[in-house]
């Protein structure tokens, strides 16, 4: 078998791209630990390098994701893992749930209202604007709501990922500028604003922040799926 034929083999492609993804992520993590700048965050650097490689080798997204989909699927078990920090912080959550609820409602309303208004001002309309509205929830919830309100679920999934990257960086800046006293507020801002990616960042900041972010992320998703019909009413 020639080298070119071997390269076209799906199994080889899957192995190469999975390995490349993991190694570039580990490399990006190392670089970020050495130089902790927000624009060097692994979630931005690793995909950027992979995208350059894919474009250079003329590999489409479909070919790439066919081999690496198992990594994305691991988000399922990772979600189950949130049971541990949430259980460990149950006393705090039981005592402070009204605060979290207030933050979730205020944050979700802000997400929908500002996305809609900014898109309107910038002349983004139609399905594209609707697809932008549910982007601060985690992907499965966001796609559900997007379809419900008349957006394009696939495009919403892309916006969700972008929000995660941007949110993890913006969250650090917001944390540094706002005089926040409670770990509850620090965790909640990541959970409401930047779903899973933000929650992963919150987990790196502290156990309590991570637990709150994880809980809030899940509850915001549930709340928005339940409230989607109301959002439609609001937009008519």
């Amino acid at each position: 078998m020639t080298l070119a034929a071997l390269w076209r083999e799906p199994l080889v492609q899957a192995a190469v791209w999975s390995l490349a993804t993991i190694l570039l992520y580990l490399l990006a993590k190392r670089v970020h630990r050495r130089w902790p700048r927000w624009w060097l965050m692994p979630l931005a650097v690793a995909p950027a390098l992979l995208m350059i490689a894919a474009l250079a080798l003329n590999v489409s997204y479909r070919d790439y994701i066919r081999g690496t989909h198992w990594l994305v699927a691991l988000l399922g078990p990772a979600t189950v893992a949130f049971a541990v920090p949430i259980y460990e912080q149950r006393a705090l959550i039981r005592r402070r749930w009204p605060l979290l609820l207030a933050g979730m409602v205020a944050g979700s309303l802000t997400a929908v209202a500002t996305s809609w208004a900014l898109a309107y001002v910038l002349g983004i309309d139609g399905e594209l604007r609707l697809s932008l509205l549910p982007r601060s929830m985690s992907t499965p919830f966001a796609m559900e709501v997007s379809g419900e309100i008349g957006g394009i679920p696939d495009l919403t999934a892309v916006f969700v990922v972008l929000t995660g990257i941007i949110g993890a960086a913006v969250g650090d800046i917001v944390l540094a500028r706002l005089p926040l006293r409670s770990t509850l507020a620090k965790g909640a801002l990541f959970g409401v604003g930047a779903h899973g990616a933000g929650t992963a960042r919150a987990h790196q900041i502290g156990r309590e922040e991570g637990a709150i972010a994880g809980l809030v992320m899940v509850l915001v998703g549930l709340m928005n799926v339940a409230l989607a019909p109301l959002i439609i009413q609001f937009m008519k």
């Binding site: 993804t21 979630l43 995909p47 790439y64 899973g196 929650t199």
Partner: peptide, 10 residues
């Protein structure tokens, strides 16, 4: 967990 988001960005 951040690793699992990387492929989705592409």
């Amino acid at each position: 967990m951040l690793l699992f988001f990387v492929p989705a960005v592409l």
